[in-house]
Write a protein that binds this DNA or RNA. Sequence first.
DNA 1: TATTATACTATACATAGAGTTCGATACCGA
DNA 2: TCGGTATCGAACTCTATGTATAGTATAATA
Lengths: 183, 183
Amino acid sequence: MDRRQRKTREAIFRAFITLLAKKDFAQITVGEIIEEADVGRATFYAHFETKDFLLKALCEELFCHIFDAASDHPSEHRHIFRCDAHGSVFWHLLVHLQKNDNGILELLSSRNNELFLSYFKVGLRELVISQLSTFAKRKSEKLPESFWVNHIAATFVETVKWWIEGGLKEAPETIAEYFYLAV
Amino acid sequence: MDRRQRKTREAIFRAFITLLAKKDFAQITVGEIIEEADVGRATFYAHFETKDFLLKALCEELFCHIFDAASDHPSEHRHIFRCDAHGSVFWHLLVHLQKNDNGILELLSSRNNELFLSYFKVGLRELVISQLSTFAKRKSEKLPESFWVNHIAATFVETVKWWIEGGLKEAPETIAEYFYLAV
DNA sequence: TATTATACTATACATAGAGTTCGATACCGA
DNA sequence: TCGGTATCGAACTCTATGTATAGTATAATA
């Protein structure tokens, strides 16, 4: 990709993230974004069809990255944390969140969190399916699979939300335990 | 309240609900609402400061009604459904949902459901707290109370969402069972 | 280095929706 | 019947969206 393109694209993302930390997505105008990014109006529309597409692109960048990081190298951390029957992928995700890669936390904790967590959940659902065998059989036998999958993904999202709203005071290990206890 | 006021207010609510079933909240314009409601522009703004306040007012009307109906008369249905240790209030809520009071289902199942379910959850959390003793001790002893309360409320919301997305094919009793199994 | 393609800038413009104002009219409650 | 008030309708201001265009800067290529 052309260096110019890459630079403007990143500038727009950065500006967008900055603004998202401060105010509602609905109240952010394209005018504000291009001013913050110091980019021409036509340039913005050359990159993103609308503000909503910008949001979508941002979510894809952020969550693709974090899910790849968590699932591509699941073994590299095995020796650090006990990798029991539950699997450590979810713990791994929590660690990545706590490290705050790409400043994702500001987005997840701002008033826009519903927006992002709904995207988060989409990627999460796939992960849950691939890890399904590592969860307790007890419940899954009595519940429809789609219900069960959705329940696990939703519980993880809610756990993360609760963690963030409390200021991330607990260790990832503790949160992972809460998650496995609850689910 | 003046009969004229009441009629306009209801006309606006009705129009808003009709539109919400068809399209995104964000894409609905005040112009559409007043046309559907057959009401003057100035009249709309005499009733609601903005479109967002209209949404808020609608949610309060709908959910206050459904929560009151479920918690004010918890005993009247006790003889119909087994009222075990888990309490029947949640089952009662499901029955009310299935009866589709106020056409609430169209709203919860449309693409705006995140919007409404977030309001739903607020009322739900209070209900959960009042019913906390009826849930399993097993988990609550190991989990922080705020986490536990949030988990129960979230699980109920997700259960309802799953039920609606599947077309409400299961009986409220079945859904209540899934809920108690999952939580 | 000279050439070509393309990304960017700045500005202007058309369009649409938000929210306000105000005089006229219709309706309500007493 | 009468005073108060809700509504109407239309015009108006503002703000934001998205597009169009002509000129400039930069990257890739030969």
